[in-house]
Amino acid sequence: MKRTVYFILTLLFVLGFGSTSAQTAALIPPQLAGIFEAPGFITSAGQTSDAAIVKVLVNTRLKLNFGYDIAAKPQAVSGAKTLVLVLGASNKGLGAAGLSIEQETERVKAVLALAKSEHMRIIAMHTGGTARRGESSNAIIALCVPHADVAIVVEGGNNDGFFTDLCAKEKVPLVMVPSIAEAGNVLKGLMAK
């Protein structure tokens, strides 16, 4: 039975991600649908391991074949047309990358500058819920979101309205989604066919 459920879920995942469902389409701002181009590249902003989850979602599940480096330097990102920044500060992740929060902030600033110089479109994603909020996370979110063309946020991460207020202030379209899987659906819907 368990295997059957898993099979069905997997099938739904595959079928669901094969095309944008009406439910997902309703979440995507019409002016943004299909305007993000490949190749895409995923990196973190704050060294959250949520970036690894987004990478698996985007590449293994959605087969979008984005580049990935959780601690990418600007030269690694160069050439991409869409940059996905997975937001959230993680002390453990920073330690693993051998970075202080100050060094990580400088890395993210450099990646953003490169993205701007190469006219990349930027998708800011926050999938880690309340665990990826707090002083350090908020600072890095505030650094990235103003540069983004869209922010996709899994609902728990915006319980306090932080993203709502920031996106309104910076005039960045905010797409709230109920799950990480739906965040992937939205991302796929944003990409040019």
């Binding site: 459920v5 690894a52 989850i53 979602l57 453990k92 992740g93 799950s179 990480i180 899987a181």
Partner: peptide, 16 residues
């Protein structure tokens, strides 16, 4: 991701 589909929310971290 699979657990989320089953309604179970788990976080993920790598070893330090």
């Amino acid at each position: 991701l699979s657990l989320e589909l089953e309604g179970i929310k788990m976080k993920l971290e790598p070893s330090s």
